[in-house]
């Protein structure tokens, strides 16, 4: 793009463009450098995560695999993430359908209520759940089930944000057509609506999963003996001898989160397109 490119607006001068480009590059470095460093140190043959590097090793990966506490905390995290993602997705589906379809009274208010957890600080949610579960209204105590409930609350609005527009985008007449052809409500859902929103359901599940798997505030407030992985990671960092075993798992978690987040969007877009043969 030269300076004489007539198709570009001249709102930004050529120098301004260069400044913006540099700014963007710095921004990317700022965003990804810590992650990249972590990946590098996970392969570094040294007990200290610092430069200069001392050569390549896989022994930290081996060590973390052999550490029982790490395996247990990972397993706890996975259980919480799968359960909370499944419940959040189901609740989001049940909440979105009537909002998208029926003439609900106070529809804007209802939508707002579903989305409020987006703006409530996580620490507030965590404290309120702590008081409620410990001695309050629902004294189920602390532990993985409580963390799971907290994660459902955090993930629900995101699942709604993915499902609601998709359901709303499906022509209501498709449901009328199914009903006209003899289908009852359940059959209409099973054969018409569900296949059409399935990519969005998977997408919502994956996003909710990613939210749960690296969530640390609620998990640390509500955990009892068995911590989830992020909580274990955070507490482990206080002990330098544990640090090197933690970095490889953190690296793998980053990878999984990236894959899931990108995968969720890809499934939603390409899944829908393929479904309709476009």
């Amino acid at each position: 793009m030269g300076a004489r490119d007539s198709s570009t607006f001249v709102l930004i001068s050529p120098i301004g463009k260069r400044v913006l480009l540099v700014f963007f590059a710095v921004f990317l470095v700022f965003l990804y450098l810590p992650t990249i460093l972590l990946v590098i140190f996970s392969f570094n043959d040294s007990t200290v995560a610092a430069f200069p590097l001392d050569g390549f090793t896989l022994r930290w990966y081996e060590l973390s695999w052999q550490t029982g506490e790490i395996r247990q905390s990972l397993s706890a995290s996975l259980k919480v993430a799968v359960a909370s993602a499944a419940i959040a997705t189901l609740l989001a589906l049940l909440g979105s359908y009537p909002l998208a379809r029926r003439n609900v009274r106070f529809r804007p208010l209802m939508s707002a209520l579903l989305l409020v957890p987006l703006v409530v600080p996580t620490v507030v949610v965590a404290v309120s759940l702590l008081t409620m579960f410990q001695r309050g209204a629902i004294p189920i105590g602390l532990g993985l089930p409580s963390i799971m409930i907290g994660h459902v609350i955090i993930a629900l609005p995101f699942a709604v944000l993915i499902l609601l527009p998709r359901i709303a985008s499906i022509d209501r007449r498709l449901e009328e057509a199914a009903s006209d052809l003899g289908a009852n409500g359940l059959q209409t859902f099973r054969f018409v609506l569900l296949p059409l929103i399935f990519p969005s359901i998977i997408s919502a599940f994956m996003i909710a999963f990613v939210f749960s798997i690296d969530e640390v505030v609620i998990a640390s407030f509500l955990s009892s003996e068995q911590p989830t992985y992020p909580v274990y990671l955070y507490s482990g960092l206080k002990f330098p001898e544990k640090t090197q075993a933690l970095i490889p798992v953190a690296t793998i978690m980053i990878l999984i989160s990236f894959l899931l987040a990108f995968g969720a969007e890809a499934i939603r877009r390409y899944g829908e397109r393929k479904l309709e043969g476009r």
């Binding site: 022509d171 009328e176 057509a177 009903s179 052809l181 059409l196």
Partner: peptide
């Protein structure tokens, strides 16, 4: 209800099941 009536409808813009 429509499901229990022996009539069928051709909708405006067809309403074919896209999947």
């Amino acid at each position: 209800p429509p499901a229990k009536r022996n009539v069928n409808m051709v909708f405006q813009a067809y309403a074919l099941f896209p999947h």
